[in-house]
Simulated scan of single mutants.
Amino acid sequence: MFENFAKSYTPSSRNSSLSASTEGVSPVLKELFEAYGGATFEDGLYRIHDVVSSREASEAAAYAFPALKAPLLCFAFDWLGRQFALDFQRGTVEDPGVVLLEPGTGEALEVPVTFSDFHDCALFRYRDSCLLPDFFGDWRRAGGQVPEFNQCIGYKTPLFLGGSDDEFNLELTDIGVYWSISGQLIVATRDLPDGTTVTGLGIAN
Rank of each mutant, 00 (worst) to 15 (best):
Q83K: 10
T92V: 08
T105C: 11
L101I: 05
P96R: 10
P103E: 08
G104M: 04
L72C: 04
K69A: 15
F84A: 01
H119W: 09
A85G: 01
D87G: 07
K69W: 02
T114Q: 12
R82W: 02
H119N: 11
V111Q: 02
E102F: 11
E102G: 15
D87C: 06
P71F: 04
L109P: 03
T105N: 10
R90D: 06
P71W: 03
G81F: 07
L68M: 11
L72S: 04
V93Y: 08
P96E: 09
G104C: 09
H119T: 04
T114N: 15
P112R: 06
Q89I: 06
V111A: 10
D117T: 09
V113M: 07
G97T: 08
L109A: 13
L73A: 14
E107G: 08
G104I: 10
L109E: 11
R90S: 11
L73P: 01
P103C: 10
L101C: 09
D78M: 07
E102H: 15
A76G: 15
P71H: 10
F115G: 03
E110Q: 14
K69R: 15
Q89R: 12
L109R: 14
F77C: 06
T92P: 03
T105E: 12
P112I: 07
P96K: 09
V99A: 12
V98C: 05
V99W: 01
D95L: 01
G104N: 12
C74D: 01
G106L: 04
P71D: 11
C74Q: 00
P112Q: 11
D78W: 05
Q83H: 15
A70G: 13
G81D: 04
F77R: 02
K69T: 14
A85P: 02
L100Y: 13
A108M: 07
F118G: 06
Q89K: 13
L100S: 13
P96C: 14
G104E: 10
F77Y: 12
V98F: 00
A76R: 00
F77V: 00
P103N: 09
Q83Y: 14
D87N: 15
G97E: 02
F115W: 03
G106E: 03
T92F: 05
F77E: 00
F77I: 00
